[in-house]
Write a protein that binds this DNA or RNA. Sequence first.
DNA 1: GTCTATATTTCGATAGAC
DNA 2: GTCTATCGAAATATAGAC
Lengths: 187, 187
Amino acid sequence: MGEKMLPRAERRRRTEGRILDAARKLFAEVGYERATIRAIARSAEVDPALVMQYFGSKQELFQQAVRVVDADAATGGDDLVERLLATLGVKLGEMPRSSLAMMRSMLTHPEAAASARRTLGAQIDRLAESIPGEDARLRAALAMTVMVGVTVSHRLLELDELREAPPEEIARLLRPGLRALTGPDVS
Amino acid sequence: MGEKMLPRAERRRRTEGRILDAARKLFAEVGYERATIRAIARSAEVDPALVMQYFGSKQELFQQAVRVVDADAATGGDDLVERLLATLGVKLGEMPRSSLAMMRSMLTHPEAAASARRTLGAQIDRLAESIPGEDARLRAALAMTVMVGVTVSHRLLELDELREAPPEEIARLLRPGLRALTGPDVS
DNA sequence: GTCTATATTTCGATAGAC
DNA sequence: GTCTATCGAAATATAGAC
């Protein structure tokens, strides 16, 4: 075996990676139901049966593809609101495709809905710790709700008004409302 | 023909109504793809073939079911923000099922996405007229975006934190942010 | 290990009996 | 006019050849 020959484990790892990338791409674009295993396999340039061989079922493939969603958002440093604005990619023009894949299907696929509730719940928990007052959890939930709305409208519905606007402008306009939500008092 | 016998046209109208109600219910609950014609017919207590006979295709049935979405929101009177809060049913515990049916599928069904963009665009237009400044349309879009986020999280994702909170409390916490968005100036 | 072929299911849609 | 029966397409999933 020459050194150009990859170990079978390594080759398998790479093929799995290609399949997962293609899956994230298609799940994010058209959602769980319309993203067929055949199309994913075609995009990854592998045989459809291989996808089943590796992941067992479409459900399993989806779960593997949308994993790693919790790893983000932990980038501390700035204050609450700035972290929020940065987290969901309002400042950056980017978002992890695994998150988009999950969000695309969260209204119509039970598994994705459960994942969304779990992820949002965790972020609400963390956010609520930094908010004083009795209604900290509700305030945190509403702040996350705002981010959900922006992400859905911008990245999933692709509303023209949001696509054309500079991200800093969007952040600037959202900032006061988020400060009112996460701040200590309200009119 | 006794008076207890309904005219055939009237009987047909009622059957169509039952089918449309069942369609709205199922489309709102599980989305376009998973709401099968068979299940809709079962819920309406009619034969599946009858649904096809009346509406021609699943697409047509969906379009008929989610129509009438634009009729709302025109309830003038209060000021901007109060109308917004009332419109998407944050105050009321209710929302038209046709709206929920459209929103449930808007991320995964192209037709529903187009309908959502159209409806949101119209509301953004109307809202922008009452907002001064260069960035009126962006501000209007972001205000609608907030409402989308609340509706999605509350009625579709059914986040516990929002379900448990009194609607007036939610409205109270959202009000400052919406005022900042629709008001004339911002920090 | 990889792919061909197919089994199995489930849907939307149609044709024809009553 | 309403329903029974079925078609045809497309999907997931499996079995077996190579």
